[in-house]
Amino acid sequence: MQFSMAISGFVALYIFMLAAFAGWVIIGHVPAILHTPLMSGSNFVHGIVVVGGIFALLNASTVQEQAIGFFAVLLGAGNAAGGFAVTDRMLAMFQPSEHVLARASHIGKE
């Protein structure tokens, strides 16, 4: 048995539609104060393209394919690593006042 998942045109459209809707709803709830980390964070998420790059490079059979595949992984890895580094750094800067911290330690657990 060949265990592979074939995603046909219509199934793909359904996936795209649901994912787009999810993205729209999730992002709609992000407060304006976090819009910069949100932009870099969503930028980080499309760094998953590096996985596609690795797939393409592993299946490369000519020097040309290897060269382009190498670039795909190089750029994709930069996208993912850089996007994570800046987003994580920015979010760590957002700290509450001390009185809020004391009062709201239980809110964080929600």
Binding site: S4, I15, G23, I26, S42, H46, G52, A56
Partner: peptide, 23 residues
Amino acid sequence: GFVLQNPALMIAGMVVGAAGMLL
């Protein structure tokens, strides 16, 4: 992601596509 038949790329890409449009 669709071309490579990889649903993770499809979902992540499209979530960001919609998020970017909204922003």
